[in-house]
Amino acid sequence: MKEKCRQAVSRLTPFLDEALPAEERAEVARHLDACPPCRQSAAKEEGGKTVLRERAAHLPTEPLPPGLRTRCAAIAERARRRALRSR
């Protein structure tokens, strides 16, 4: 992989997340315009990102095991009593 490609690929994530300073962003954009393989990497990354962001909410979530909330609340309560005692 060419050095320029390596540099561009290492900044793909903040580039796609719009987290790069304007100058660096323009630099990566210019490279992508000129380099089909890197453009393809960017397209793949964007594809994976988009699917996950749009679809994750549809994935089934496992219900909390019975009793877990009660047990965690008890942990909180014990901590509260300890704090009161130590005052």
Binding site: V9, S10, L12, T13, P14, S41, K44, E45, E46, G47, G48, K49, V51, L52
Partner: peptide, 17 residues
Amino acid sequence: VMSRISRGRRLLFDALS
């Protein structure tokens, strides 16, 4: 972190496409 995100997203794309 960024390189893991990048590769993770691309692997996800590859697996789905």
